[in-house]
Amino acid sequence: MTARSLFIPLTLLLVLAFLIGPFLIIVAASFSAGETLNFPPQGFSLRWILKVFTVESFRASFGMSLFLAIGGTAAALVLGIPASYALSRYKLPGAEIVRTVVSAPIIVPGIIVGLALLRYIVVPFQVGITAALFLAHTALVLPYAVRVVSASLDNLRSDIEEAAVLLGSSRLGAFFRVVMPNIRGGILSAFILGFVTSFNQVPVSLFLSGPGVRTLPIDMIAYMEIVFDPSVAALSSLLAFLSIGIVFAAERFLGFSRYV
Protein backbone atom coordinates (compact mmCIF):
# COMPACT_ATOMS: atom_id res chain seq x y z
CA MET A 1 0.00 0.00 0.00
CA THR A 2 2.81 2.43 0.84
CA ALA A 3 4.49 1.73 -2.47
CA ARG A 4 1.25 2.63 -4.18
CA SER A 5 0.59 5.76 -2.18
CA LEU A 6 4.09 6.96 -3.02
CA PHE A 7 3.70 6.05 -6.68
CA ILE A 8 1.00 8.61 -7.41
CA PRO A 9 2.62 11.83 -6.09
CA LEU A 10 6.05 10.79 -7.33
CA THR A 11 4.82 10.05 -10.85
CA LEU A 12 2.91 13.32 -11.00
CA LEU A 13 5.86 15.29 -9.70
CA LEU A 14 8.27 13.83 -12.27
CA VAL A 15 5.88 14.15 -15.20
CA LEU A 16 4.90 17.71 -14.35
CA ALA A 17 8.54 18.67 -13.77
CA PHE A 18 9.30 17.34 -17.24
CA LEU A 19 6.33 19.01 -18.89
CA ILE A 20 6.24 22.35 -17.09
CA GLY A 21 9.77 22.70 -15.68
CA PRO A 22 11.36 23.88 -18.93
CA PHE A 23 8.72 26.57 -19.23
CA LEU A 24 9.40 27.81 -15.71
CA ILE A 25 13.11 27.95 -16.52
CA ILE A 26 12.34 30.10 -19.56
CA VAL A 27 10.27 32.42 -17.41
CA ALA A 28 13.07 32.69 -14.85
CA ALA A 29 15.66 33.27 -17.58
CA SER A 30 13.66 36.11 -19.04
CA PHE A 31 14.14 38.12 -15.84
CA SER A 32 17.91 37.74 -16.04
CA ALA A 33 20.14 40.76 -15.80
CA GLY A 34 22.92 39.03 -17.75
CA GLU A 35 23.81 39.41 -21.41
CA THR A 36 23.39 35.78 -22.44
CA LEU A 37 20.70 33.21 -21.97
CA ASN A 38 21.48 31.31 -18.78
CA PHE A 39 20.00 29.45 -15.87
CA PRO A 40 20.10 30.14 -13.00
CA PRO A 41 19.69 33.76 -14.16
CA GLN A 42 22.36 36.30 -13.28
CA GLY A 43 20.55 38.86 -11.16
CA PHE A 44 17.05 40.17 -11.70
CA SER A 45 15.93 42.78 -14.18
CA LEU A 46 13.10 43.62 -16.53
CA ARG A 47 15.44 44.73 -19.29
CA TRP A 48 14.74 41.78 -21.63
CA ILE A 49 11.02 41.92 -21.10
CA LEU A 50 11.10 45.60 -21.97
CA LYS A 51 13.47 45.06 -24.86
CA VAL A 52 10.99 42.77 -26.59
CA PHE A 53 8.68 45.72 -27.15
CA THR A 54 11.39 47.78 -28.80
CA VAL A 55 12.53 45.23 -31.39
CA GLU A 56 11.01 46.47 -34.62
CA SER A 57 10.80 43.06 -36.35
CA PHE A 58 9.04 41.53 -33.37
CA ARG A 59 6.44 44.25 -33.46
CA ALA A 60 5.84 43.77 -37.16
CA SER A 61 5.70 39.98 -37.02
CA PHE A 62 3.51 40.08 -33.92
CA GLY A 63 1.08 42.25 -35.86
CA MET A 64 1.20 39.79 -38.76
CA SER A 65 0.60 36.78 -36.51
CA LEU A 66 -2.25 38.54 -34.75
CA PHE A 67 -3.83 39.44 -38.08
CA LEU A 68 -3.50 35.86 -39.34
CA ALA A 69 -4.81 34.33 -36.14
CA ILE A 70 -7.84 36.60 -35.91
CA GLY A 71 -8.57 36.95 -39.63
CA GLY A 72 -7.77 33.36 -40.56
CA THR A 73 -9.87 31.97 -37.72
CA ALA A 74 -12.76 34.27 -38.53
CA ALA A 75 -12.61 33.23 -42.19
CA ALA A 76 -12.42 29.57 -41.20
CA LEU A 77 -15.54 30.02 -39.06
CA VAL A 78 -17.40 31.81 -41.84
CA LEU A 79 -16.70 28.80 -44.07
CA GLY A 80 -16.85 26.19 -41.32
CA ILE A 81 -20.11 27.03 -39.54
CA PRO A 82 -22.35 26.53 -42.61
CA ALA A 83 -20.41 23.39 -43.54
CA SER A 84 -20.78 22.00 -40.02
CA TYR A 85 -24.46 22.81 -40.13
CA ALA A 86 -24.87 20.98 -43.43
CA LEU A 87 -22.94 17.98 -42.13
CA SER A 88 -24.85 17.81 -38.90
CA ARG A 89 -28.40 18.57 -40.07
CA TYR A 90 -28.75 17.58 -43.69
CA LYS A 91 -28.72 14.43 -45.66
CA LEU A 92 -25.78 15.71 -47.64
CA PRO A 93 -24.77 13.85 -50.78
CA GLY A 94 -21.07 13.01 -50.44
CA ALA A 95 -21.00 14.01 -46.78
CA GLU A 96 -17.96 11.84 -46.12
CA ILE A 97 -16.03 13.43 -48.98
CA VAL A 98 -16.83 16.92 -47.71
CA ARG A 99 -15.83 15.93 -44.19
CA THR A 100 -12.54 14.46 -45.40
CA VAL A 101 -11.70 17.40 -47.61
CA VAL A 102 -12.32 20.06 -44.98
CA SER A 103 -10.44 18.14 -42.28
CA ALA A 104 -7.56 17.05 -44.51
CA PRO A 105 -5.28 20.02 -43.70
CA ILE A 106 -4.93 18.59 -40.19
CA ILE A 107 -3.59 15.27 -41.47
CA VAL A 108 -1.00 16.51 -43.93
CA PRO A 109 2.19 17.94 -42.44
CA GLY A 110 2.14 21.73 -42.40
CA ILE A 111 5.44 22.12 -44.20
CA ILE A 112 3.98 20.32 -47.21
CA VAL A 113 0.90 22.54 -47.20
CA GLY A 114 3.10 25.61 -47.13
CA LEU A 115 5.36 24.36 -49.90
CA ALA A 116 2.46 23.30 -52.12
CA LEU A 117 0.83 26.66 -51.65
CA LEU A 118 4.06 28.47 -52.50
CA ARG A 119 4.70 26.50 -55.67
CA TYR A 120 1.20 26.15 -57.08
CA ILE A 121 -0.70 29.17 -55.81
CA VAL A 122 1.75 31.93 -54.90
CA VAL A 123 4.11 31.59 -57.84
CA PRO A 124 1.71 30.81 -60.74
CA PHE A 125 -1.06 33.18 -59.65
CA GLN A 126 1.21 35.96 -58.38
CA VAL A 127 -0.48 35.91 -54.97
CA GLY A 128 1.11 38.11 -52.33
CA ILE A 129 2.80 36.50 -49.34
CA THR A 130 0.37 38.05 -46.89
CA ALA A 131 -2.61 36.76 -48.86
CA ALA A 132 -1.00 33.33 -49.13
CA LEU A 133 -0.38 33.22 -45.39
CA PHE A 134 -3.99 34.20 -44.85
CA LEU A 135 -5.22 31.38 -47.11
CA ALA A 136 -2.88 28.89 -45.46
CA HIS A 137 -3.90 29.79 -41.93
CA THR A 138 -7.59 29.71 -42.87
CA ALA A 139 -7.17 26.22 -44.34
CA LEU A 140 -5.23 25.16 -41.27
CA VAL A 141 -7.88 26.34 -38.80
CA LEU A 142 -10.83 25.05 -40.87
CA PRO A 143 -10.62 21.45 -39.56
CA TYR A 144 -10.67 22.66 -35.95
CA ALA A 145 -13.56 25.01 -36.66
CA VAL A 146 -15.61 22.26 -38.29
CA ARG A 147 -14.80 19.75 -35.56
CA VAL A 148 -15.67 21.99 -32.61
CA VAL A 149 -18.76 23.58 -34.18
CA SER A 150 -20.03 20.17 -35.35
CA ALA A 151 -19.61 18.80 -31.85
CA SER A 152 -21.73 21.56 -30.35
CA LEU A 153 -24.34 21.23 -33.13
CA ASP A 154 -24.55 17.49 -32.53
CA ASN A 155 -25.21 18.20 -28.86
CA LEU A 156 -28.15 20.40 -29.81
CA ARG A 157 -31.39 18.66 -30.74
CA SER A 158 -32.31 19.47 -34.31
CA ASP A 159 -36.05 19.58 -33.67
CA ILE A 160 -35.79 23.05 -32.11
CA GLU A 161 -35.22 24.42 -35.62
CA GLU A 162 -38.34 22.66 -36.84
CA ALA A 163 -40.23 24.00 -33.84
CA ALA A 164 -39.09 27.52 -34.70
CA VAL A 165 -40.17 27.09 -38.32
CA LEU A 166 -43.60 25.83 -37.28
CA LEU A 167 -43.92 28.92 -35.08
CA GLY A 168 -43.49 31.07 -38.15
CA SER A 169 -39.74 31.51 -38.53
CA SER A 170 -37.92 31.10 -41.83
CA ARG A 171 -35.15 28.49 -42.03
CA LEU A 172 -32.47 31.16 -41.92
CA GLY A 173 -34.30 32.97 -39.13
CA ALA A 174 -34.49 29.73 -37.15
CA PHE A 175 -30.72 29.34 -37.46
CA PHE A 176 -30.04 32.79 -36.07
CA ARG A 177 -32.83 32.75 -33.46
CA VAL A 178 -32.49 29.32 -31.94
CA VAL A 179 -29.32 27.64 -33.22
CA MET A 180 -26.73 30.40 -32.91
CA PRO A 181 -27.60 31.36 -29.32
CA ASN A 182 -27.19 27.74 -28.29
CA ILE A 183 -23.87 27.07 -30.01
CA ARG A 184 -22.28 30.39 -29.10
CA GLY A 185 -20.01 28.70 -26.58
CA GLY A 186 -18.86 26.21 -29.20
CA ILE A 187 -18.15 28.95 -31.73
CA LEU A 188 -16.15 30.98 -29.24
CA SER A 189 -14.23 27.87 -28.22
CA ALA A 190 -13.51 27.12 -31.86
CA PHE A 191 -12.29 30.68 -32.24
CA ILE A 192 -9.92 30.40 -29.31
CA LEU A 193 -8.61 27.01 -30.38
CA GLY A 194 -8.13 28.30 -33.92
CA PHE A 195 -6.44 31.44 -32.67
CA VAL A 196 -3.93 29.55 -30.52
CA THR A 197 -3.28 27.00 -33.29
CA SER A 198 -2.72 29.66 -35.90
CA PHE A 199 -0.65 31.88 -33.67
CA ASN A 200 1.73 29.08 -32.67
CA GLN A 201 1.92 27.56 -36.13
CA VAL A 202 5.36 27.33 -37.72
CA PRO A 203 5.70 24.75 -40.53
CA VAL A 204 2.92 26.12 -42.75
CA SER A 205 4.46 29.59 -42.66
CA LEU A 206 8.04 28.37 -43.15
CA PHE A 207 8.15 28.85 -46.89
CA LEU A 208 5.72 31.72 -46.88
CA SER A 209 7.88 34.60 -45.83
CA GLY A 210 9.00 37.56 -47.82
CA PRO A 211 10.77 40.82 -47.23
CA GLY A 212 9.31 42.21 -44.03
CA VAL A 213 6.49 39.65 -44.01
CA ARG A 214 6.95 36.99 -41.37
CA THR A 215 4.97 35.40 -38.59
CA LEU A 216 6.17 35.85 -35.04
CA PRO A 217 7.34 32.27 -34.32
CA ILE A 218 9.39 32.26 -37.53
CA ASP A 219 10.86 35.59 -36.56
CA MET A 220 11.76 34.20 -33.14
CA ILE A 221 13.58 31.23 -34.68
CA ALA A 222 15.46 33.53 -37.01
CA TYR A 223 16.40 35.82 -34.13
CA MET A 224 17.63 33.04 -31.86
CA GLU A 225 19.90 31.72 -34.60
CA ILE A 226 21.74 35.03 -34.58
CA VAL A 227 21.50 36.42 -31.07
CA PHE A 228 21.80 34.36 -27.91
CA ASP A 229 20.34 36.82 -25.44
CA PRO A 230 17.29 36.27 -23.21
CA SER A 231 14.90 38.38 -25.31
CA VAL A 232 13.41 35.31 -27.05
CA ALA A 233 12.90 33.78 -23.61
CA ALA A 234 11.18 36.96 -22.49
CA LEU A 235 8.98 37.00 -25.58
CA SER A 236 8.15 33.31 -25.16
CA SER A 237 7.12 33.90 -21.56
CA LEU A 238 4.91 36.83 -22.52
CA LEU A 239 3.21 34.85 -25.30
CA ALA A 240 2.77 31.83 -23.08
CA PHE A 241 1.09 33.87 -20.37
CA LEU A 242 -1.11 35.47 -23.01
CA SER A 243 -2.25 32.06 -24.36
CA ILE A 244 -2.71 30.62 -20.89
CA GLY A 245 -4.67 33.69 -19.85
CA ILE A 246 -7.01 33.43 -22.84
CA VAL A 247 -7.56 29.71 -22.40
CA PHE A 248 -8.04 30.07 -18.67
CA ALA A 249 -10.63 32.80 -19.16
CA ALA A 250 -12.35 30.70 -21.83
CA GLU A 251 -12.51 27.72 -19.50
CA ARG A 252 -13.83 29.92 -16.72
CA PHE A 253 -16.59 31.57 -18.70
CA LEU A 254 -17.38 29.05 -21.43
CA GLY A 255 -16.32 25.66 -20.13
CA PHE A 256 -13.89 25.58 -23.07
CA SER A 257 -12.81 21.97 -22.42
CA ARG A 258 -16.34 20.71 -23.09
CA TYR A 259 -15.99 21.69 -26.73
CA VAL A 260 -12.40 20.85 -27.54
Binding site: L156, R157, D159, I160, V165, G168, P181
Partner: peptide
Protein backbone atom coordinates in the same frame (compact mmCIF):
# COMPACT_ATOMS: atom_id res chain seq x y z
CA UNK B 1 -47.17 26.03 -48.51
CA UNK B 2 -43.97 26.23 -46.43
CA UNK B 3 -44.11 25.01 -42.83
CA UNK B 4 -43.83 28.49 -41.34
CA UNK B 5 -46.98 29.69 -43.14
CA UNK B 6 -49.32 26.75 -42.49
CA UNK B 7 -50.93 27.55 -39.14
CA UNK B 8 -50.22 24.01 -38.03
CA UNK B 9 -48.86 23.46 -34.51
CA UNK B 10 -46.66 20.57 -33.44
CA UNK B 11 -45.79 19.37 -29.96
CA UNK B 12 -42.60 17.39 -30.41
CA UNK B 13 -41.92 14.14 -28.62
CA UNK B 14 -38.81 15.73 -27.12
CA UNK B 15 -40.81 18.98 -26.63
CA UNK B 16 -38.10 20.91 -28.56
CA UNK B 17 -38.17 23.89 -26.22
CA UNK B 18 -35.55 26.54 -26.96
CA UNK B 19 -32.96 25.94 -24.23
CA UNK B 20 -31.67 29.51 -24.14
Amino acid sequence: VPANKRAVGLVFQSYALFPH
